[in-house]
Design a protein around this nucleic acid. Structure first.
Length: 613
RNA sequence: GGUCCCGUAGCUCAGCGGAUAGAGCGACCGCCUCCUAAGCGGUAGGUCGUGGGUUCAAUUCCCGCCGGGACCA
């Protein structure tokens, strides 16, 4: 039995049921007209809106007049119909709204977590993060990693079967560079990379690691290569040795890869990000390259380009630049590996969609890859999606690992943590788990910032922007959650427990079902109603994340929710002694529902919600 | 030179066919004897780059131009 024992007329109806009733009524009143409902801009207008423009045109009527006629003709139990200009708005009675929203969140009458959907029977691959071996994580890598994580989580939340892949850059000409640099400057006197190089600036204290020294070798090689072009051939030769399975090259490759993976894993753990496998990086496809080229050849797509390079022409599909699949020296290129990867995934996963969370600088690359795949097998048409994101730049220009002018991700996370710690010291020095909370909020700030700005536009990195802690930020949302938890603790009983979840398996926070209070009259205040309206927007925002392949709608929704809660919190006392018990209980239930949605929403984005801060 | 992306408040950005264009930061003015002021309320600030077109309706779609960026050669 869901929905509590109250006498509210719609007690077993969630928002979905109300929507269906409204739609049915509209269909009856307007036979032959396609009905599409919208969510009004604000809860004061109503809960559902029917824009009358199209229907009015079809019927040769004035939309304002039609909306008035419909308002008079249609009845939905527990709601009033308001003609607002050309819109027909369905506005729930305060108690009905409270019952519908709280029922869906607390009691989950459908048996599913609020906002989640049943299994779709569709498989989605999300390829994200994909760092290059022997390079350190920069702030730039955060975008792919966290956007991908949020996409994987929300897709699972909405019932898709998700495969999370990391196309590690563990192959390619940059390995030639690394191998050449290592044999030149490290092999003899510093083979284990245990000491700082005397020719390099000493590594910063917290980065005295072999991986950082590998990175230094890489940077030095590129610097010197500018003066001495012959070095480029040296690097190329090393990569050729690697591709030809030279034992020494292979052994070093494996060492560098292991070194990097250990470092990456540490960062993924810190970010709370995971993959279904880390074994399908670029190198994984190495022995499938020949077959891929053969397949292109058999399909008659392979053409001889300049100086013996091999290309696929794409002019006939509107792409002027041919796709280069093999260089003149016979070595492979990353396009070949992406093609091999797609063919492998077709076979291994039979996916419905494959999302590539890769920067905008790769748009042409993916256009080419997808076009080649379409030619090879029409099966691929429409399944391949590049989700590009804007590059992170510095005020002085592009970041470049080669040139060494980069912002390392860990420096940003550390700085964020320290700034938060300073604020805790000032505002709440008695806080229990100060270090843990500082980390949680610092991460929240950085990750949330990225989601708020998720767009194709490039981001210019400045410390104060990325680690902002007031206003529309992660910590603002986290603060709302902490305040709720504080109220719930003070309320006693098992109130706090109702907003807490056990360990999450996958994207779902396992909240226990809980009853909706019978009397919800304590939620009639406009601030409480506004908060309910925001809560009702959560499922739509998660859907928008999947539709638009970006976390932005969810992040914005959570800010709106937190803001709405603040309004409720300042205007509607929850624990005031003069509150009648039923008012107190109704408001506490609203707090629990809000905490759950905030916590679940943040969790989908890879951010934790603090109990106090 | 070609292709693609972006021009919305002083700054950073939402909105992307429809209801008076929204936030945050910064500025200014208020609010802690009361559930965490990392908060809340208010004021100021916009010819949505520009010129055309499509539409009952354009910040939103199409074309040209100007400005910024990316990729390819």
């Amino acid at each position: 039995m869901a929905g509590g024992a109250g006498a509210a007329p719609m007690r077993n109806h969630g928002m979905d049921a109300l929507r269906l009733t409204f739609e049915r009524q509209l269909k009856e009143a307007l036979p032959g007209v396609e009905i599409t409902l919208e969510r009004p801009k604000s809860g004061e207008l109503g809960d559902l809106a029917f824009p009358c423009f199209r229907a009015a045109k079809q019927l040769g009527k004035n939309p304002v007049q039609l909306s008035q006629e419909l308002a008079a003709a249609i009845r939905v139990e527990g709601a009033t119909l308001v003609a607002a200009g050309p819109y027909l708005n369905l506005k729930l009675a305060p108690e009905t709204r409270a019952q519908a929203v709280l029922g869906a969140i607390l009691a989950a009458p459908s048996g599913r977590p609020y906002g989640a959907r049943p299994a779709q029977g569709k498989k989605v691959i999300v390829e994200y993060s994909s760092p290059n071996i022997a390079k350190l994580f920069t702030i730039g890598h955060l975008r792919s990693t966290m956007i991908g994580h949020a996409l994987a989580q929300t897709h699972r939340f909405l019932g898709y079967d998700v495969v999370r892949l990391n196309h590690l850059g563990d192959w390619g000409t940059q390995f030639g560079t690394l191998l050449a640099a290592y044999t030149r400057w490290a092999e003899a006197e510093n083979p284990e990379l245990q000491r700082d190089f005397d020719w390099a600036e000493p590594a910063p204290e917290k980065r005295r690691t072999p991986l950082f020294r590998l990175f230094q070798l890489y940077v030095r090689f590129h610097a010197e290569e500018e003066q001495d072009p012959a070095m480029r051939d040296e690097a190329r030769a090393w990569f050729k040795r690697l591709e030809d399975n030279d034992p020494k090259a292979r052994a070093l490759w494996k060492r560098f890869r292991d070194l990097s993976l250990a470092e990456f894993q540490r960062i993924y753990d810190r970010l709370g990000v995971g993959f279904d496998t880390l074994e399908q990086g670029e190198a994984f496809y190495e022995d499938r390259l020949a077959a891929t080229l053969k397949r292109l050849e058999d399909a008659g797509l392979l053409v001889e380009g300049d100086k013996g390079a091999r290309i696929v022409n794409l002019e006939d599909v509107g792409i002027a630049t041919p796709c280069l699949v093999q260089k003149a020296d016979g070595t492979s290129i990353y396009a070949t590996r992406d093609l091999a990867a797609a063919l492998y995934r077709q076979e291994a996963y039979a996916f419905d969609r494959c999302l590539y969370v890769v920067g905008t600088d790769q748009v042409l690359h993916f256009q080419q890859i997808f076009a080649v795949l379409d030619k090879l097998d029409p099966w691929f048409k429409g399944r391949m999606v590049h989700t590009p994101f804007g590059m992170v730049k510095l005020p002085e220009g592009k970041m470049s690992t080669r040139k060494g002018n980069v912002i390392f991700l860990e420096d940003v996370l550390d700085e964020a943590r320290e700034r938060v710690a300073a604020i805790i010291e000032e505002k709440n020095p008695e806080l229990k788990d100060r270090a843990g909370v500082a980390e949680m909020l610092g991460m929240g700030a950085v990750v949330f910032f990225d989601a708020m700005n998720d767009r194709v536009k490039p981001i210019t990195f400045t410390w104060d922007r990325v680690i902002a802690l007031d206003g529309d930020t992660g910590p603002y949302v986290q603060y709302a959650h902490a305040r709720i938890m504080s109220v719930l603790r003070k309320a006693g009983g098992d109130w706090a427990a109702k907003a807490q979840a056990g360990r999450a398996d996958g994207p779902f926070l396992p909240f226990a079902g809980s009853k909706v209070p019978a009397d919800l009259a304590g939620l009639e205040a406009p601030e409480a109603q506004g908060l309910l309206f925001e809560l009702a927007g959560f499922p739509g925002s998660v859907g928008a994340v999947v539709d638009g392949c970006m976390a932005t709608p969810l992040a914005r929704q959570l800010v709106g929710l937190a803001r709405s809660f603040s309004g409720f919190y300042t205007n509607c006392p929850i624990l005031a002694p003069e509150n009648p018990p039923e008012v107190r209980e109704a408001r506490l239930a609203l707090c629990v529902a809000t905490a759950r949605v905030l916590r679940q929403g943040l969790f989908l984005m890879g951010i934790q919600a603090p109990e106090e801060m």
